[in-house]
């Protein structure tokens, strides 16, 4: 009896009409000859009906291995399913759409900060602060307000740890962590909902 260790990969990118072999969805360790035979086994061929996400469950891989040799004993670890993402063509980013979103964010951010300042009477507070420190009155205390405005931007950049391409240290920024979490949530959803092995409808046959 031979023992084979297998670990499912997390995410695999494939193209249309490509053959997916067992070695593409999992890593196998064991008897060299046997592993080679298993690895080359074709699991499926990507067709148009597959849309863009295919979930390969661990049991499908075990099934495929047992079809080759019943006597193999399998030890698994790692994730229990692989997400296969079908890339149809390189997604082209529309420059126009990007510019539109950029302008939307730019103008929106500018307007919301102005609304916020009016809402919390920021101007009055600045006037009062000017009087507090200098003892004089000034309707437009620009000496506070211009550094304040640039400070706003500096604070946001500090928080996100990014100035265009430049970063201040090795740690991932909160934004990158947020992107990662969002991707994880999406993966969790497709694993549960696109996986043929995890949902079964017995109600309306």
């Amino acid at each position: 009896m031979d023992l084979i260790y297998l670990r499912m990969r997390n995410r695999v990118h494939v193209q249309k009409n490509q053959q997916v072999r067992l070695k593409d969805v999992a890593k196998f360790i064991g008897d060299d000859e046997q592993v080679k035979k298993i690895e080359e086994e074709v699991l499926l061929t990507v067709t148009h009906e597959d849309k863009n996400i295919i979930i390969i469950d661990l049991v499908q891989v075990i099934e495929a291995i047992q079809a080759i040799d019943q006597s193999i004993e399998i030890q698994t670890f790692g994730p229990s399913q692989t997400i296969i993402e079908v890339i149809y063509e390189k997604q082209k980013v529309s420059f126009l759409a990007f510019t539109a979103v950029w302008l939307l964010l730019f103008l929106g951010a500018g307007m919301t900060i102005m609304n916020f300042h009016v809402d919390v009477s920021m101007g009055e507070v600045h006037q009062k602060l000017f009087t507090l420190i200098t003892g004089r009155e000034d309707r437009k205390p620009l000496l506070i307000q211009i550094p304040y405005s640039f400070g706003l931007g500096i604070g946001m950049i500090l928080f996100f740890n990014h100035f265009f391409k430049k970063r201040f240290n090795e740690e991932p920024s909160p934004l990158e962590v947020e992107m990662f979490n969002y991707q994880q949530d999406l993966d969790q959803y497709v694993i549960m909902n696109e996986n043929k092995e995890s949902n079964r409808h017995l109600d309306n046959r």
Binding site: F106, G110, T112, I113, F150, L152
Partner: peptide, 11 residues
């Protein structure tokens, strides 16, 4: 875009 929007809106 957000950062520049905030700075310029505020100024």
């Amino acid at each position: 875009a957000l950062v520049l929007g905030k700075i310029i809106g505020s100024l």
